[in-house]
Simulated assay, not measured.
Amino acid sequence: MNPNLVFLNSFLDVSEETFSKLAKISSYKKLEPGVLISKPGEVPNKIYMLTSGMMRAYLSDEKGKEFNKNFFMPFSFVASLTALIQKQASTLTYETLTECKVYELNFNDIQDLCKKDISISNLYNRILEHVFIRYEERQLELISMDATKRYLKLRKKIPDIDKLIPQYQIASYLSITAVQLSRIRKKIKAL
């Protein structure tokens, strides 16, 4: 079975017909590391289904300091959902960290299909529910876990993270400094 269909079926039972409709409005792309798929100040209109590689969403302050909001691994949907839904400029930057393979979809095309096809509307709703649950889990991690536990959980989720991306990006995601992350790593090695 097509792995993309398997992924969609993890949200809801998707028929071949529904999958075909989605395939017709999507385009396959290979993206090099460092590609910005969404920039602050721009109103986005695309959503990406990441099938290979790693991406991130981050915020930059006026001094250029980056604050990582999220890392995306296959299979996941990547987009500035708030900006898409509200048709407003994004405050976040979405960037490929490694070579990525994605399916790009126009958000308006998805919305149009949702109005015509209850199966696609149901799938869309399930995906939004999944995104919300992940967001809430992340918020709970930040308020209930110390930095070491957050780091260990991140390493469990992305085992090669220390080889894939720079330490400062990991530290930013964990809401700590690179120095604190270095101390945590030393402490873990000593155990």
Rank of each mutant, 00 (worst) to 15 (best):
M1I: 11
P3W: 00
N4K: 08
N4M: 05
V6K: 15
F7H: 02
F11V: 13
F11E: 08
D13C: 07
D13N: 11
V14C: 00
V14R: 00
S15C: 13
E16W: 00
E17Q: 14
F19L: 03
F19D: 05
K21D: 00
K21V: 02
L22W: 10
K24W: 06
S26N: 01
S27Q: 12
K29N: 12
K29S: 04
K30F: 01
L31N: 05
E32R: 15
E32M: 14
P33Y: 04
G34S: 09
V35H: 01
L36I: 14
L36V: 08
L36N: 09
I37P: 00
P40K: 13
E42D: 11
V43F: 09
N45F: 11
N45L: 09
K46L: 14
T51G: 03
T51N: 05
S52I: 02
S52D: 09
G53W: 01
M54T: 05
M54Y: 08
L59H: 03
L59K: 05
L59Y: 05
S60C: 11
S60R: 11
E62S: 15
K63P: 07
E66W: 12
K69Q: 10
N70R: 13
N70E: 10
F72G: 04
F72T: 10
F75M: 12
F77W: 15
L81D: 05
L81T: 10
L81V: 12
L81A: 01
T82A: 11
A83H: 06
I85T: 10
Q88E: 15
Q88H: 12
A89W: 14
L92E: 05
L92H: 09
Y94Q: 09
L97W: 00
T98R: 06
T98K: 08
E99C: 09
C100D: 01
K101W: 06
E104G: 01
E104W: 02
N106K: 07
N106L: 04
D109Y: 11
D109H: 14
I110G: 13
Q111P: 07
Q111W: 14
D112I: 08
K115F: 07
K116A: 08
S119N: 06
I120T: 04
S121T: 00
S121R: 07
L123R: 03
L123F: 03
N125Y: 13
N125H: 14
I127D: 02
E129F: 15
I133T: 09
R134Q: 10
E136H: 12
E137Q: 15
R138P: 11
Q139T: 08
L140R: 15
I143H: 11
I143S: 14
I143L: 13
M145H: 08
T148F: 02
Y151R: 01
Y151T: 00
Y151F: 09
L152R: 10
L152T: 06
L152A: 05
L152Y: 09
K153P: 04
L154A: 05
L154W: 03
R155H: 02
K156Q: 15
I161G: 07
D162F: 08
D162W: 07
L164D: 05
L164S: 07
P166V: 03
P166N: 03
Y168A: 03
Q169E: 15
S172L: 05
L174W: 02
S175H: 04
S175M: 06
T177V: 14
T177K: 11
A178P: 08
V179N: 14
S182F: 06
R183H: 11
R185N: 04
K189S: 06
L191K: 12
L191C: 06
